[in-house]
Design a protein around this nucleic acid. Structure first.
Lengths: 141, 141
DNA sequence: GCATTTGTATCAAGTAGGGTTACAGAAGGG
DNA sequence: CCCTTCTGTAACCCTACTTGATACAAATGC
C-alpha cells in the first residue's frame, strides 16, 4: 500500500519550527529529531518552501523557520504542499473501451476520488499547526 | 506517491460481476476488460473472496460471481477488503524520544490518521456497488 | 577570507507492484 | 476414468519510488 510518510515528517518538522518561533533551525538538528538524514529534511523543506509555509536561509546562521504563524497554517495546506496525491489511483493502463463497464468506469471512479479527496482536505483543514503543537506539548491525544 | 490502483481495479471487476448477475466470469475475461493479466485479477479476486464479497469456483465452467446483491455491497467494504491501508504513514524509524516533539508526535498523528480514515470509510460507504454500476451504465457522472 | 549551512545532483539499496510463466488441484463432461 | 477447463499460488523479472549517503557549488555572517 506504500502510504506516504512524508506528510508525518512534514508535520513533525513544522511542529519543531512552531516551537522555536523565530529562531532558524538547521536541517541537521531537525533530521536528528525526525531520525533521518539532513538531506531528506532539506528536500522536504524545499517543498514546504515552494508552498510558502517555511522560509529558509543559506549561509552561516542559516536554517529554516515558519513563514506564518502556526495558527495560520492548517494540515490541509501541508498535505497539499507535500503533494500526497490521491487516496487511490486509477489503473496505469486504461481499461478496454470495448467493454461497457471499462468505457465509463474511469470517469465514475475519478468523480468519487475527487469527492473523497475533498473530504480529506476538509477534515485536515480543521487542524492548525498550533493545534497539533499544543496536542503534542500537552501529551494529550 | 504510489497511490493504490488496486481499489479501482477491484471496483471495475466487481462492477463487471454485478452486470452479469449469476453467471461465472473467468479471470481471463475480466483481465481483458481491465487491461491487465489474468493472474493479477485472480490475486485481486482472492482478496475479495476472503472478504466474502465474491465466490469463486475452480474447474471447468468455473469463475467468479458476487457473493451478495450489488446493493448490499458498498465501496467502504471493498476499500477495506483491498487493505488500502492508511492515507499517510508514520515514518519508518521512530522519532527521537529525547525531543519533546518527537516523543509525542506519533500519538497525535496516529489519532488524526484514524479520524481521516474513518471519514474516508464514511464517504465510501454511501456508494453501493449498485450505485456505481448504474452510474457507469448510464454514462452519468 | 573562512566557517557554516542550504540547495541539488548523483548514486546505492531497499521495497512494492505489475506482469509473466508454470504448474498443482478442482470440477464438469464424455 | 480421462481430458479439458479453470482457479490458486509460487517463482521470477522488471520498473518505479523512497530513503539514505556523499559531494560540492553558492550564499551568508563574522
Amino acid at each position: 500500500m506504500a502510504a506516504n510518510s512524508q506528510f508525518s515528517m512534514a508535520v513533525h518538522v513544522l511542529a519543531m519550527l512552531a516551537r522555536s518561533k523565530d529562531e532558524n533551525l538547521k536541517s541537521d538538528y531537525l533530521a536528528s529529531s525526525v531520525n533521518t538524514n539532513a538531506v531528506v529534511v532539506r528536500r522536504l523543506l524545499g517543498q514546504l518552501n515552494q508552498a510558502k509555509l517555511v522560509v529558509s536561509q543559506t549561509g552561516a546562521n542559516g536554517g529554516s523557520r515558519l513563514a506564518r504563524c502556526p495558527n495560520e497554517i492548517n494540515l490541509a495546506e501541508i498535505y497539499k504542499a507535500i503533494n500526497c496525491g490521491e487516496v487511490f489511483a486509477l489503473h496505469a493502463k486504461a481499461p478496454s473501451q470495448d467493454c461497457p463497464i471499462g468505457k465509463n468506469i474511469e470517469a465514475v471512479l475519478g468523480c468519487i476520488q475527487r469527492e473523497i479527496d475533498k473530504g480529506i482536505s476538509e477534515k485536515l483543514s480543521r487542524y492548525t499547526l498550533q493545534n497539533v503543537f499544543e496536542m503534542v506539548e500537552q501529551g494529550k491525544v
